[in-house]
């Protein structure tokens, strides 16, 4: 039995989405269930998981890396890692979607740091505008609602919290680099990242039901 968490997937975000979703096949398993099957070597489930999450995976890699070719490589690495290590997914620690995105983000950040070592990252950040072409009406609507919610919640943060979080998450900076860029003390940045995420968590209503 898979316990659902608020982070589980888009279909809990807003009621209109739920209605739209129910038009599709009834018993389409969610990412949590799919990942459980993937852990047992189910290649079909992996294909379904790919279809469900690849736009997020690729979109995130693209956002961090900017470069489409590199994003494609990182997305592939991350998704193969998901296949390889699916047995390690622990549903009591969060949703499958979040687990997959964490793997993706980590790889993207590692790549960007390796590639950018010694070169100028400023320009890259300046060119930060990314549009999000996305096919699939239901998914697009879901995405839109989620995006709006995330955007609204980001606005509830203080400027320093917001900047610290976005520089780290979207641009792959370490907290030391963030502190330098924002001309703030290290402990301040650490605290702002944590406080900001806590506020974001409460605004988005994220909960993780630990253990059982």
């Amino acid at each position: 039995m898979s316990r659902r968490t608020a982070g589980d997937d888009p279909d809990r975000v807003e009621s209109p989405t739920t209605r739209l979703r129910s038009v599709g096949p009834d018993d389409v398993p969610g990412p949590d269930e799919l990942l459980r099957l993937v852990a047992r070597g189910d290649e079909q489930a992996f294909a379904a998981l790919y279809d469900a999450l690849s736009p997020r995976v690729f979109g995130l890699a693209r956002r961090v890396l900017r470069d489409a070719a590199q994003a494609e490589e990182v997305a592939q690495e991350a998704l193969v890692e998901v296949w390889r290590t699916a047995a390690r997914f622990d549903p009591s620690r969060g949703s499958a979607t979040s687990w997959v995105l964490t793997i993706t983000h980590r790889r993207a950040v590692d790549r960007v740091r390796a590639a950018q070592a010694g070169s100028d990252r400023e320009r890259r950040v300046a060119a930060a505008s990314v549009d999000t072409p996305y096919d699939g009406v239901v998914e697009a609507v879901t995405a839109n609602l989620e995006q709006q919610q995330v955007r609204r919640c980001l606005q509830t943060l203080t400027e320093l919290q917001r900047e610290a979080i976005t520089l780290a998450y979207y641009d792959g900076f370490t907290y030391r680099e963030v502190a330098e860029k924002l001309d703030a003390a290290l402990p301040t940045i650490k605290t702002r990242m944590r406080d900001g995420l806590i506020r974001l968590r409460d605004c988005l209503g994220v909960t993780v039901e630990v253990g059982s």
Partner: peptide, 15 residues
């Protein structure tokens, strides 16, 4: 971590 990965929803893109 769950919260951070919600930030990814700002950038969906079909590969």
């Amino acid at each position: 971590s769950e919260t951070a990965s919600r930030l990814a929803s700002a950038s969906l893109e079909s590969p």
